[in-house]
Design a protein around this nucleic acid. Sequence first.
DNA 1: TGGACATGCCTAAAAGTATTAGGCAAACGG
DNA 2: CCGTTTGCCTAATACTTTTAGGCATGTCCA
Lengths: 189, 189
Amino acid sequence: MAYAGLTPERLTRAGAELADEVGFDQVTVSALARRFDVKVASLYSHLKNSQDLKTRIALLALEELADRAADALAGRAGKDALTAFANVYRDYAREHPGRYAAAQLRLDPEAAAAGAGVRHARMMRAILRGYDLAEPDQTHAVRMLGSVFHGYVSLETAGGFSHSAPDSQESWSRVLDALDALLRNWPAS
Amino acid sequence: MAYAGLTPERLTRAGAELADEVGFDQVTVSALARRFDVKVASLYSHLKNSQDLKTRIALLALEELADRAADALAGRAGKDALTAFANVYRDYAREHPGRYAAAQLRLDPEAAAAGAGVRHARMMRAILRGYDLAEPDQTHAVRMLGSVFHGYVSLETAGGFSHSAPDSQESWSRVLDALDALLRNWPAS
DNA sequence: TGGACATGCCTAAAAGTATTAGGCAAACGG
DNA sequence: CCGTTTGCCTAATACTTTTAGGCATGTCCA
């Protein structure tokens, strides 16, 4: 058999595509081997194991997400930045549901620290520079923003907001309006 | 072998306990059979298949959550109700991480409609009676509350807020304060 | 240029999970 | 007490994960 040219990177990318097509929990070493028309055992020269594959896909997704967010944030501030950043999350989850699910994978602390998690946190704080929040309220606000973005996208992806009026796009806009208003008027302790 | 007394209900409860102990994605028909000291095939008289088991655990968790929330809401209004309701979610997820994960399972629409999802939605709206929100803002607010609660609890469970100051309890309180302020002062379209 | 060595994918095999089909014995109803 | 139902069992198939060891292909050096 000719060389298939397997590498960890190609396997990770293919795994991410597979995740978007069939769901992250359906991503399996076997399925990936089928996709490359190669025997399953062959992948174990490039991947430590199944968990390793999933972790790599998660890290890929976090990087992509951080790259998009950084792009979106460039040259924006205030509500404009808030909206752009939030839309990156939502759009990414809609375009790449499998990757987004992967990004939610619980990573061991060292993998998380090595990954793009830190970039995400820094960008959140950058957005808050457009509002007037001192510590520790800034941290509270960062956590709240993360919760709303992740929570909304996650519920929407699960189908929570479909089949009922008003449509999800409208709620999303109004939720972002509300967040902006809240940040401009954050209640004192 | 003496009769083990298997029923769908007992299997579901045991599955929920198993989920809390080892994680929802580790809940397997085989593991459940081991717990009852019974052969795997025996469970298939009581469960349609693995998916059926997971769905039952999810529905159980949603019921328990709705029961607790209804208790907490009784006799409360306004911010008091908001806080009590939110704490039910958070406490449940901390006490029963496996069950909480199960409650996030994507259910087929018919199972979801039959389940406690409707009760949850109604309780959210009941909380909002303490604030002055007309439709469609009420729906937007319901979606936002759901997003914050689910998102916060989910990120906290994933370890997102540990190992950094201020501690998560403090952020949670301040986020609830912020939500209360926001609902009392919801921005006009 | 031809061998030496490393690399890449293979076969083989063991273990765990999911699921179905059919059997035997205990419980139960008349 | 007998017949039927119920409940758990054995047996078998299929798929996924993972390890061990083999053969061929590509690379590098004399």
